[in-house]
Amino acid sequence: MGAVLPLLALRAFCETARLGSLKAAAERMGVTAGAVSQQIRLLEERLGVILLTRNRYGVQLTEAGEVLYPGLSRGFGQIESALLDLDALTRAATLTITTQPSFAASWLVPRLAAFKALYPEIEVQVQATAELVDLHRSQVDIALRHGLGEYPGLESTRLLAPVLLPVISPRLLAEGPALQAPQGCLEYPLLQDAERADWTLWLQAHGVEPDSRSRRGPSFDEDMLLLRAAADGQGIALVQAQHAEDDLRSGRLVVAVDRPWPSRFAYYLVARKQSLQRWPVQVFAQWLGTQVASES
């Protein structure tokens, strides 16, 4: 190939192969799809082989591409990891956390003042997003994720397992039929999670055979949206108990039926192994564990 490696072309090929799309690779690299395509074409001309074929669904690796991609992927991964380690060292007392907007607003942010009082020298940055952040390819130190704890290549610590609680606006409850048992929830409009699964599972857990009503109603992908719809009187929302704390305390919502149900998912503190060696990450992880233990 020669002494000078065409790094830009190699990266264009690697990102396209990893993401399966010229457009996605271009967005990742901050260039146009045409520029990525040109770099790959120059690389193929230099190597004398075809690496990718294009079809209506995206791109597909040729036999030569299958040989080249794994080694390149490992190499660029090691480069990114080394740069992240260097960045972690130079950022000193900064701490970047990513989590879901509902968890950030209802649980994490209200408790951060206590952490700041203990460690005023640490600058905390919270990224509240519903998108799953790739910790291997970002400057985020910690992710607080809701899942089953299976995060390949990352270290995870179980924090808390939320329970699902049905909540309703006082006005809607006063206007509707009496609610004394889980079965009665089916007489009200139900506000659904994005997968329309929680109500069915909750009813089954309390001995109620779900029917078609258990999957009807508008759906929302965030507990914050479910809570706002419930406070507006649109129906009963089944949400994580800690997300409803403020609304219950203020009286905007009340518990429809006091039958909380444990979720099989939990919140985990997730980080790269190298990130856990940083002092700000270590003290935050310890503080967070103490917070969870004191409230359980």
Score class of each variant (00 low, 15 high):
55 N>I: 04
243 H>L: 06
135 L>K: 00
258 D>V: 09
287 W>F: 15
238 L>T: 00
37 S>Q: 12
77 G>W: 09
122 I>R: 03
53 T>V: 15
205 A>L: 05
76 F>A: 06
279 W>K: 15
132 L>W: 11
162 P>Y: 04
239 V>W: 01
269 L>A: 11
160 L>W: 09
52 L>Q: 06
294 S>Q: 14
49 V>K: 05
102 S>F: 10
70 P>H: 10
133 V>N: 05
246 D>A: 15
121 E>V: 09
186 L>H: 01
148 L>M: 14
62 T>I: 00
131 E>F: 14
42 L>Y: 06
228 R>V: 12
96 T>D: 14
112 L>C: 03
196 R>V: 08
219 S>G: 12
85 D>L: 13
120 P>K: 08
230 A>Y: 03
140 V>G: 10
242 Q>F: 14
296 S>C: 13
253 L>H: 04
131 E>T: 15
45 E>Q: 12
56 R>E: 11
148 L>K: 14
23 K>Q: 11
80 E>V: 14
293 A>F: 13
114 A>D: 10
247 D>P: 01
101 P>E: 11
265 F>N: 11
104 A>W: 09
277 Q>V: 14
203 L>A: 02
241 A>W: 02
235 G>T: 06
130 A>R: 11
171 R>L: 09
17 A>Q: 03
130 A>Q: 11
126 V>G: 03
29 M>S: 04
15 E>H: 04
271 A>P: 02
182 P>C: 02
7 L>E: 07
162 P>W: 00
253 L>E: 04
249 R>I: 08
278 R>W: 01
129 T>Q: 11
283 V>Y: 02
186 L>E: 00
276 L>P: 06
71 G>V: 10
249 R>L: 13
56 R>G: 05
252 R>E: 15
90 T>V: 14
52 L>S: 03
292 V>P: 12
255 V>W: 00
221 D>C: 07
46 R>L: 07
143 A>T: 06
245 E>D: 12
168 I>H: 04
27 E>F: 09
207 G>Q: 09
105 A>L: 12
11 R>N: 10
58 G>N: 05
247 D>R: 11
274 Q>C: 07
87 D>I: 13
16 T>G: 08
114 A>V: 09
209 E>F: 09
189 P>W: 03
209 E>V: 15
187 E>P: 02
207 G>R: 08
155 E>L: 09
289 G>C: 07
